[in-house]
Simulated assay, not measured.
Amino acid sequence: MAKRPAPSSGHGDMPFDGSGATDGLEDASLFDERLFFAPQTAKSTRGDKPAKPPSTPATPEAHYHGHRERLRNRYRDSGDTALADYEILELLLFRLIPRRDTKPIAKALLARFGTLGGVFGASTKLLQEVSGVGEAVALDLKLVASVAQRMLKSELTGKPLLSSWKALIDYCHTAMAHETREQFRILFLDKRNALIADEVQGLGTVDHTPVYPREVVRRALELSATAVILVHNHPSGDPTPSRADIDMTKTIVETARPLGIAVHDHIIIGKNGHVSFKALRLF
């Protein structure tokens, strides 16, 4: 019967006798230490040449980084007149979406809502329907819209509104033109026609808002207002007054007059402009 070869101990060609002991224990220990401290060189599968360590490919810089810097420089050097609307929107989205190309998102927002005013006037729900716009970005866009409204409203504070008509129309248009439901707003004025309060009295559907003349007058008396300006929007975009708008306005005028409260005007705001009842001599 052939003699079976002795198993290797893993230490070169040193014999293993099956008892767990090796010949030349000190030499084996020294051999182990040399192997342990010797530099470990990876070998390739071809011949005895050491394999080269795998190289890590350089990560290319995102293509939009240079574009962002160029756009910022144009804005810095020439102001907003040097930029298209989508580029202005891009500049804002740079801050809100730091690691994406925001040009397609800016263009998609304008394509969906038509104008910058339409973008900032859209609801957070509608904004999130655009690819790339999440809840956080939608809320930040609405925050910018709120800042714009507050800025325009501050131009009215303490000033006679009848002599600040353009500022009044700009504010109302920013606040209401892009609302998807009708909104009835009342501006309460003191005896100098300065703004006391700006309140939304009712929210309705796409083509109707319930208005109660007695409630309008009651609130004016609570605020010690001597005059009001009525404002509501038409989500359709057309500011032409309806028969119901005219009748409701006349009822408020007739209810307020005996109590010393004047109705200076009723303004209808649409996306495409506005209409003044006073200018049209509708009451």
Rank of each mutant, 00 (worst) to 15 (best):
P235K: 08
D170N: 15
G158Y: 03
L259C: 05
E182P: 03
I246L: 11
E69C: 03
A175K: 14
K125D: 13
S78N: 14
V275D: 09
K49P: 00
E33L: 15
S224H: 15
R70A: 15
L141Y: 01
Q128E: 13
A122I: 04
S146I: 00
A194H: 12
E90P: 01
K103Y: 06
K125W: 07
H234T: 03
K52L: 12
A111F: 00
H232P: 05
I267Q: 01
R72H: 10
A145M: 01
I269Q: 06
M1Y: 12
H232T: 05
H63P: 10
D13L: 08
L161I: 13
L110E: 06
D207W: 03
A42G: 14
R257H: 12
L156A: 06
V130I: 05
A138K: 02
L280R: 15
E90Q: 13
T249D: 00
M151V: 07
G260L: 12
A136H: 09
G20E: 04
F16Y: 13
E182N: 09
L152F: 08
K3S: 11
G237D: 07
T115K: 08
D80Y: 11
D140C: 03
I97W: 03
V144F: 10
L259H: 15
Y86W: 12
D207P: 02
G47F: 08
G204L: 05
D245E: 04
V119E: 05
K271S: 11
T102K: 02
L195K: 09
G202R: 01
D265E: 06
G47M: 05
C172W: 03
V147Q: 11
A145V: 00
G118V: 04
A177R: 04
A122G: 04
A106N: 05
T255D: 00
K278W: 13
A38W: 08
I196V: 15
G10D: 09
E87W: 02
R99L: 07
D32A: 14
L139Q: 14
L230D: 09
M248Y: 01
D23Y: 04
I246E: 13
A62G: 08
A21Q: 12
V130C: 02
V119L: 03
T251H: 01
A220F: 09
M151K: 12
G117Q: 09
A220G: 11
S131M: 02
K125R: 14
E129A: 06
F31S: 14
T45D: 11
M248I: 00
E222H: 09
A225L: 08
Q128C: 07
L223E: 07
K159S: 10
D85Y: 03
S236G: 15
L168I: 07
P39D: 10
G10E: 08
M1G: 15
F31D: 13
T41V: 15
R95K: 10
E33T: 10
S276C: 06
